[in-house]
């Protein structure tokens, strides 16, 4: 059904609603294996929801989600937890376990999923921490770290089990330029060094465009456009152009839907 060799994730005709609000309306997205794919769009358009659908923390109302040849919404609880071992997710807040030290946070997936000896766990944890440059911080608690460092520890934890698919949820939000630069480099580096497939969900245009091999722009429950960063920059579609160029007004209006301004003002005086 799916060509699992070229595409690691294949979303087909996904429909998802939250309450009465339609978030996705028949969306098709394919994530090429071994590449960094960026998913971009304005705030609140359901980018994070997309990652949660792939990670099966949410279920679509209809459509299928193929990851490595398995249709995620059809899996049972046990199979699902097994499938998730091959996925890593970096959450917006880092989501480190606050009652465990940095070392124990990174060791956590290894301890629960493997029977490795303590010496082996230690070697692996130090390896992962070295990769994100925080080997020296291993005895600190998460609340002693800055936001950027927390995110790097979370990244080390996410790659502890050597997943095939890494998902980044808004990795650049609230970062100073230095840690932003560090993260951008790390995502690219890890992807190429470990042979991962990465999905970066973000609305930070420049950073995402600089590392992504392929981009999707979503909005209004639809895929507005896709292509390499260069293709999208030169797109004819006005909505994509507005987003890519960051223009305040355009197809996405600056004003929230409202009655005519003048009429509104006059109406009040009449009262």
């Amino acid at each position: 059904m799916t060509d699992s060799s070229d595409y690691i994730v294949d979303l087909q005709q996904i429909t998802f609603r939250r309450g009465s609000r339609l978030i996705f309306d028949g969306v098709d997205i394919r994530i090429p294996r071994g590449k960094v794919t960026g998913i971009m769009g304005p705030s609140g358009c359901g980018k994070t929801t997309l990652l949660r659908l792939i990670g099966a923390q949410l279920r679509p109302d209809s459509g299928s989600i193929w990851v490595n040849g398995q249709n995620i919404p059809e899996l049972g609880r046990e199979q699902l937890f097994a499938a998730r071992k091959h996925m890593g997710m970096l959450f917006q807040s880092g989501a480190l376990f606050t009652d465990l030290s940095v070392f124990e946070n990174v060791a956590f997936p290894l301890r629960v999923h493997t029977e490795l000896s303590e010496a082996m766990v230690r070697d692996l944890v130090l390896l992962k921490l070295q990769a994100v440059g925080l080997r020296g911080a291993r005895d600190l608690m998460p609340d002693e770290l800055s936001g950027g460092m927390q995110r790097r520890v979370a990244l080390a934890r996410a790659i502890a089990l050597d997943p095939q698919l890494m998902m980044y949820d808004e990795p650049f939000v609230g970062q100073d330029p230095i840690s932003m630069g560090v993260l951008v480099r790390l995502i690219r580096l890890l992807n190429d060094a470990l042979g991962l497939t990465s999905i970066v969900v973000s609305h930070d245009l420049a950073e995402t465009a600089s590392i992504a091999d392929y981009l999707y722009v979503v909005g209004d429950g639809q895929v507005l456009g896709q292509g390499t960063p260069d293709e999208l920059m030169n797109s004819d579609n006005p909505r994509i152009r507005q987003f890519m160029q960051g223009e305040p007004d355009g197809p996405v209006p600056f004003h929230y839907q409202a009655p005519d301004y003048l009429a509104d003002l006059l109406h009040r005086e009449q009262k």
């Binding site: 949660r52 990670g55 923390q57 609880r77 937890f81 097994a82 998730r84 071992k85 996925m87 890593g88 997710m89 959450f91 917006q92 807040s93 989501a95 480190l96 376990f97 606050t98 956590f108 997936p109 629960v112 999923h113 979370a154 934890r157 996410a158 089990l161």
Partner: peptide, 16 residues
């Protein structure tokens, strides 16, 4: 733990 996504990230690590 829920608000700081610790429960979600635990799920994604494959731990219930």
């Amino acid at each position: 733990m829920k608000a700081t996504e610790q429960l979600s990230s635990m799920e994604m690590i494959g731990v219930d």
